[in-house]
Design a binder for these strands. Sequence first.
DNA 1: TATTCCTGTCCTG
DNA 2: CAGGACAGGAATA
Length: 169
Amino acid sequence: MHSNLSSARFAIGSSPLGVFAVVASDKGVAAILFGASRPDILADLRRRFEVLPQEDAKGLATLLQQAAAMITDPRRSVALTLAPRGTKFQRQVWDALRQIPPGRTASYADVARRIGSPRAVRAVAQACAANPIAIAIPCHRVVRSDGAAGGYRWGAKRKAMLLAAEAAL
DNA sequence: TATTCCTGTCCTG
DNA sequence: CAGGACAGGAATA
């Protein structure tokens, strides 16, 4: 991961799932990240981007609000232009994830089949873990074939909360 | 139940 | 460059 556009900006907000950041370039949303605290998020941004994006709370206020709305109610999907950086394989996986509607789940094996690599189940899990845009690329909707929730980059607790919120109709 | 193999990417030595 | 780890899972014994 090495998104590195000089135009990248970020803003930090809070949600029921904790502090989060949105990062956007002129090409769209580059990242939505959770963290334990503001410093924790800044450290994550430094790790992910060669050049730390500039903070722009005012310019990204609308986007921040949209992201917060999606986190609060994942069933409400906001149309955002996404610009995640990743390998071809990773983008294939992420595109497949975006086809899983709110309230539904798919197994890692389902996703592997969908992208035409039915045996790449483990690689799919790895690509999910590398997803830089939480919520908007719904990696939390990918669960294990045996019914277990599977892991989550930002903690099993957040995954469980998201799935519970989406299941409640 | 435990082993083995599969897959793509990243990290470490 | 080699080997291990990883948010998994099917096949095999």
